[in-house]
Each structure stands twice: as C-alpha cells, then as structure tokens.
Simulated assay, not measured.
Amino acid sequence: MKEDWLEELIAAADTDKRNEKQIKILQAAVDMFSEKGYASTSTNEIAKKAGVAEGTIFRYYKTKKELLMAIVLPALTKFAAPFFIQSFAKQVFEDSYDSYEQFLRTVIRNRFEFARKNMPILKILIQEVPFHPELKQEVQNVFEKELYSRFVGIIQQFQKQGDVIEIPAATIIRLSVSSLAGFLLTRFLLLPEASWDDEAEIEYTIQFILHGLTPRGDI
C-alpha cells in the first residue's frame, strides 16, 4: 500500500500509475534522498532499492539531478502551492479570528499535521533547497505569491485592534515562522524518537511567540 505522500507525488508528477517501475524509482529516490541526502546517494543505490537496472532510471530521467527535480518541483509547484492556496487558505485565511493567538493556533496546528503527513518530501526540501538555486527560488515564489501578503494583512488587522505590537509585519512573520519551524524540525527531523507531548509543545510554542520568555506577571 502506497503512503499518502507518494500518491500525491505520483499525481503531481503526472506519472502513469500503471508504470510500476517508475513509481518504484520515485519511491526509492525519496527514501534514499531523505535518508542519505542527494549528494551521498548514487543512482546505482536507488536502482538496487527500486529493484530495477540502473539504466532503467536513465530511461525516465537523464541525470540524478533531473530525478531530484522530478520529486521536489512537482511537490512545490503542483502539490505544496495548491495546498497553500486551497486547503491552507480555506482552513486559515478564510476564517475570521478574534485575536492573533487564535489565528496563530490555527496556523500551527495546520502546519503540524502537514509536517506529520509529508515529512519524507519536506526532509528532502530542507536538505536540498540551500544547494539548488532553482529550488530556493521556487520556495520563495510560493511563499511570496501565495502567503506573504495574506499574513501581512492579518497582522496589520490585529495591530489596528491593538492585539499585536507595532513592529514591522515582516519581523512578526519572521519571528513567528522561525519559532514554528524550529519546533517542527526538532519534532519530526532532529529528534523524532524523543518522548513528545505534542499538545503541550504546541501550546509552549504559541505562548513563546506571544510572550517570549518573560514571566507574564513581570510584563
């Protein structure tokens, strides 16, 4: 039985679902790139894991780099971007919120579930984006075109209501996103086997973003 993320990847990459060899190559490449990293993985290793000849890989992908792009670019342009626009927008931006805390709580829970379900692909993106300019540009495009202005609008709304301090919206986004990313990376990538109380950690992250480390009574 294929994992959910692989089904999404196959659909995003326009791969013929009947072509089992190509599907096995994609699955093996995701597993190997996620486990060892792109640079440390050879096409021979991918072929062995997929149970195909190495030449079969090059029948579908001219180079290892093309295979990487076949995995991550669809994930960004056809999978991640539509997810942000459709699911994320419906679940987050189309609702009304009484406070920035309520908005933040919705965002964090949404991204937590997304990371939990799609970590193999996200792990490859985290590992490879810094080393491939085209991937970095695509990530920036998705964020800037689909998310940034919406976040700014929400923050400015709560600043007018006096619910958020008057500092640049870009700074608030950076501080909020970096705290959330730090939590998700530690939870799912760095220390996934640790004993986690997810509900408590989500709450700690929210309270840290809202109040920092200063005891509430001393503010």
Rank of each mutant, 00 (worst) to 15 (best):
A29S: 15
A29G: 12
A75Y: 15
P82I: 11
K24M: 07
K48P: 04
G37I: 10
A194C: 02
K64V: 08
F93C: 06
M32W: 03
D14C: 05
E193R: 09
A89V: 13
A47M: 07
A50S: 09
N141K: 11
V72L: 14
Q159F: 04
F188L: 10
P130F: 06
Q137S: 15
F88T: 00
K145R: 08
L73Y: 06
A169G: 03
I209G: 00
A13W: 04
S34N: 03
I23P: 03
Q157H: 15
L175R: 07
K21P: 02
N141C: 01
G55S: 04
L104E: 04
E35Q: 12
T77K: 13
Y61H: 08
E193N: 12
G55H: 01
F112Y: 15
F114Y: 12
E193Y: 12
R111C: 14
V92D: 01
I57G: 02
Q27A: 14
Q156A: 03
E134V: 09
M32A: 14
T63E: 05
S42N: 02
L6S: 09
D163W: 00
L26T: 02
Q140V: 06
D163K: 05
F151Y: 14
P120C: 06
K2R: 15
S195Y: 00
P192E: 08
T205C: 12
D198C: 02
F79H: 14
